[in-house]
Measured scan of single mutants.
Amino acid sequence: NQASVVANQLIPINTALTLVMMRSEVVTPVGIPAKDIPRLVSMQVNRAVPLGTTLMPDMVKGYA
Score class of each variant (00 low, 15 high):
residue 23 R to T: 04
residue 19 L to Y: 11
residue 18 T to R: 09
residue 6 V to G: 00
residue 27 V to K: 07
residue 15 T to N: 04
residue 49 V to M: 05
residue 50 P to A: 09
residue 2 Q to F: 14
residue 17 L to S: 00
residue 47 R to Q: 08
residue 32 I to G: 01
residue 9 Q to W: 13
residue 59 M to A: 07
residue 14 N to Q: 10
residue 41 V to D: 03
residue 22 M to C: 03
residue 37 I to E: 03
residue 43 M to L: 13
residue 55 L to H: 01
residue 64 A to S: 14
residue 19 L to W: 11
residue 39 R to G: 13
residue 44 Q to M: 13
residue 27 V to W: 03
residue 51 L to C: 13
residue 47 R to H: 13
residue 22 M to Q: 00
residue 44 Q to I: 09
residue 29 P to Y: 12
residue 40 L to K: 00
residue 63 Y to A: 03
residue 3 A to V: 06
residue 62 G to L: 14
residue 46 N to M: 15
residue 15 T to C: 05
residue 61 K to R: 12
residue 24 S to Y: 09
residue 59 M to R: 03
residue 60 V to S: 01
residue 44 Q to E: 10
residue 41 V to N: 04
residue 14 N to W: 11
residue 36 D to Y: 06
residue 16 A to I: 09
residue 25 E to R: 05
residue 40 L to F: 02
residue 58 D to G: 09
residue 61 K to Q: 14
residue 18 T to E: 04
residue 61 K to H: 10
residue 38 P to Y: 12
residue 6 V to K: 03
residue 20 V to C: 15
residue 25 E to L: 05
residue 21 M to L: 07
residue 9 Q to Y: 14
residue 59 M to K: 02
residue 19 L to S: 08
residue 56 M to I: 07
residue 45 V to I: 09
residue 7 A to S: 07
residue 58 D to I: 09
residue 21 M to A: 05
residue 55 L to C: 02
residue 45 V to K: 00
residue 32 I to L: 06
residue 42 S to D: 06
residue 28 T to W: 05
residue 36 D to K: 04
residue 58 D to M: 13
residue 25 E to P: 01
residue 14 N to P: 01
residue 62 G to T: 08
residue 57 P to D: 08
residue 25 E to M: 05
residue 36 D to R: 03
residue 47 R to M: 10
residue 42 S to Y: 10
residue 28 T to R: 03
residue 47 R to P: 02
residue 47 R to L: 09
residue 42 S to T: 14
residue 54 T to E: 01
residue 49 V to W: 02
residue 50 P to T: 15
residue 7 A to L: 04
residue 35 K to S: 15
residue 46 N to Q: 12
residue 64 A to K: 08
residue 63 Y to K: 03
residue 33 P to T: 07
residue 43 M to P: 00
residue 58 D to K: 08
residue 36 D to M: 05
residue 11 I to L: 12
residue 35 K to F: 15
residue 8 N to F: 10
residue 9 Q to S: 08
residue 24 S to P: 08
residue 26 V to K: 04
residue 9 Q to N: 05
residue 48 A to K: 08
residue 15 T to Q: 10
residue 56 M to P: 01
residue 5 V to L: 03
residue 32 I to E: 00
residue 46 N to F: 14
residue 8 N to D: 13
residue 60 V to P: 01
residue 12 P to Q: 07
residue 62 G to D: 10
residue 26 V to F: 09
residue 3 A to H: 14
residue 64 A to R: 08
residue 42 S to E: 08
residue 35 K to Y: 15
residue 4 S to K: 01
residue 63 Y to P: 03
residue 17 L to E: 00
residue 59 M to T: 06
residue 9 Q to I: 09
residue 46 N to I: 14
residue 28 T to Y: 13
residue 57 P to Q: 15
residue 52 G to N: 12
residue 54 T to A: 06
residue 37 I to L: 14
residue 54 T to N: 02
residue 8 N to L: 05
residue 8 N to M: 10
residue 35 K to I: 14
residue 1 N to S: 15
residue 40 L to E: 00
residue 27 V to G: 03
residue 46 N to A: 11
residue 33 P to G: 06
residue 6 V to D: 00
residue 33 P to Q: 08
residue 38 P to F: 09
residue 13 I to A: 07
residue 20 V to G: 10
residue 43 M to E: 04
residue 50 P to Q: 14
residue 61 K to G: 08
residue 51 L to R: 07
residue 3 A to L: 13
residue 43 M to F: 12
residue 12 P to D: 13
residue 8 N to Y: 06
